[in-house]
Simulated assay, not measured.
Amino acid sequence: MANADSTPRELPDPSALAASGRRVFDIEASALQAVAARLDGAFSEACRLAYHCTGRVVCTGMGKSGHVARKIAATLASTGTPAFYMHPGEAGHGDLGMVTDADLVLAVSYSGESDEILMLLPVLKRQGNVLLAMTGRPQSTLARAADVHLDISVPEEACPLHLAPTSSTTASMAMGDALAVALLEARGFTADDFARSHPAGALGRRLLLHISDVMHTGDDIPRVGPDASLGEALLEMSRKRLGVTAVVDADSRLLGLFTDGDLRRTLGDRRVDVYATTIGEVMTRDPVTIGSEALAVEAARLMETRKINALVVLDDSQRVVGALNVHDLFRARVV
Results as ranks from 00 to 15, higher is better:
Ser6Tyr: 02
Pro8Trp: 00
Leu11Gly: 06
Pro12Asp: 06
Asp13His: 00
Pro14Gln: 05
Pro14Cys: 06
Arg23Met: 02
Val24Trp: 13
Phe25Gly: 07
Glu28Gly: 10
Glu28Leu: 06
Ala34Arg: 01
Ala37Gly: 03
Gly41Val: 00
Gly41Glu: 03
Ala46Val: 11
Leu49Glu: 12
Ala50Asp: 05
His52Trp: 15
Thr54Trp: 08
Thr54Arg: 14
Arg56Ser: 12
Val58Ser: 04
Cys59His: 04
Thr60Lys: 13
Gly61Arg: 07
Met62Asn: 14
Met62Asp: 11
Gly63Tyr: 03
Ala69Cys: 10
Arg70Met: 02
Arg70Thr: 01
Ile72Thr: 13
Ala74Gly: 06
Pro82Phe: 05
Ala83Gly: 08
Pro88Leu: 11
Gly89Gln: 14
Gly89Ile: 13
Ala91Arg: 08
Ala91Thr: 03
Gly92Asp: 03
His93Gln: 11
His93Ala: 13
His93Thr: 08
Gly94Asp: 09
Gly97Trp: 06
Thr100Gln: 14
Asp101Tyr: 03
Asp101Gly: 07
Val105Pro: 05
Tyr110Ala: 11
Tyr110Pro: 10
Ser114Asn: 12
Asp115Ala: 14
Glu116Tyr: 10
Ile117Lys: 02
Leu118Tyr: 09
Leu121Val: 01
Arg126Ala: 12
Gln127Tyr: 00
Val130Ser: 07
Leu131Lys: 02
Thr141Cys: 12
Val148Asp: 08
Val154Leu: 08
Ala158Ser: 02
Ala158Lys: 01
Cys159Gly: 01
Leu161Tyr: 01
Leu161Trp: 00
His162Glu: 04
His162Trp: 01
Leu163Ser: 11
Ser167Met: 09
Ser167Tyr: 10
Ser168Asn: 07
Ala180Asn: 10
Val181Phe: 06
Val181Cys: 13
Leu183Ile: 01
Leu184Gln: 04
Ala186Ile: 07
Phe189Pro: 05
Phe194Ser: 03
Ala195Val: 03
Arg196Asn: 06
His198Gly: 07
Leu207Lys: 05
Ser212Val: 09
Gly218Met: 12
Val224Pro: 15
Val224Gln: 13
Pro226Met: 08
Ala228Asn: 10
Ala228Tyr: 08
Ser229Phe: 00
Leu230Pro: 02
Ala233Gly: 11
Ala233Tyr: 10
Leu235Gly: 14
Gly243Leu: 03
Val247Met: 14
Asp249Ile: 04
Ser252His: 00
Leu254Asn: 06
Leu254Arg: 04
Leu255Glu: 00
Phe258Met: 12
Thr259Cys: 09
Arg264Pro: 11
Arg265Val: 01
Arg270Pro: 15
Arg270Lys: 15
Val272Thr: 06
Val272Ile: 07
Tyr275Thr: 09
Thr278Glu: 13
Gly280Ala: 04
Glu281Met: 10
Asp286Leu: 09
Pro287Gly: 09
Gly291Glu: 05
Glu293Lys: 13
Ala294Gln: 14
Ala294Trp: 11
Leu295Lys: 01
Ala296Trp: 13
Glu298Phe: 01
Ala299Pro: 05
Ala300Gln: 06
Arg306Pro: 01
Arg306Asp: 05
Arg306Val: 00
Asp316Ser: 03
Arg319Gly: 14
Arg319Val: 03
Val320Tyr: 09
Val321Thr: 12
Gly322Lys: 04
Leu324Met: 04
Asn325Cys: 15
His327Gly: 08
Arg331Ala: 15
Ala332Met: 13
Arg333Gln: 15
Val334Gly: 04
Val334Glu: 03
